[in-house]
């Protein structure tokens, strides 16, 4: 059974998402902030993180960047789940923040479940390997 961590500062959204995902047989963890999510990731390793962007404190962009910067968590599949839906927001999610995918709010249940299934069935993307390659190339 796959485990999904839902990170959103709005309790209602955490509850609704949790219900949707549990109904599909997933184990669901939830965090109310980026800080709480990073703390949880010290002890647990979900298969997928659904990450809100606009949160007080650490926002989703920064939370995702920190997930990618740590060896233990850098390869966890992360999907931004956000109402920030401009092309620029999507580019930021996929490029600068290193998320695997972007899902727009408001949530369409069927599409969300389908996307979650696709992300969990896809091989995880490996992060942070290019930098090593460049450094090695430069030394030789």
């Amino acid at each position: 059974m796959s485990t999904i961590l839902v990170v959103d500062d709005e309790e209602d959204i955490r509850f609704v998402l949790g219900q949707m995902l549990k109904r599909e047989g997933y184990e669901v963890l939830s965090a109310g902030s980026g800080e709480e999510a990073l703390e949880m990731l010290k002890k647990t390793r979900p298969d997928l993180i659904l990450l809100d962007v606009m949160m007080p404190g650490l926002d989703g962009w920064e939370t995702c960047a920190r997930i990618r910067s740590q060896e233990e968590t850098k390869d966890i599949t992360v999907a931004m789940l956000t109402a920030k839906t401009s092309d620029e927001d999507k580019i930021r999610a996929l490029e600068s923040s290193g998320a695997n995918w972007h899902i727009s709010k408001p949530i369409d249940r069927a599409k969300l479940i389908d996307t979650v299934r696709w992300l969990l069935e896809s091989p995880p993307r490996r992060h942070g390997h290019g930098k090593d390659g460049v450094e090695k190339g430069g030394d030789s």
């Binding site: 401009s86 092309d87 620029e88 999507k90 580019i91 996929l94 490029e95 695997n100 993307r125």
Partner: peptide, 16 residues
């Protein structure tokens, strides 16, 4: 693939 899709989003932003 993710690179082509991300770069495609940039084209869409410019077109808009």
């Amino acid at each position: 693939d993710i690179g082509s899709v991300t770069n495609g989003l940039k084209i869409l932003a410019v077109a808009k």
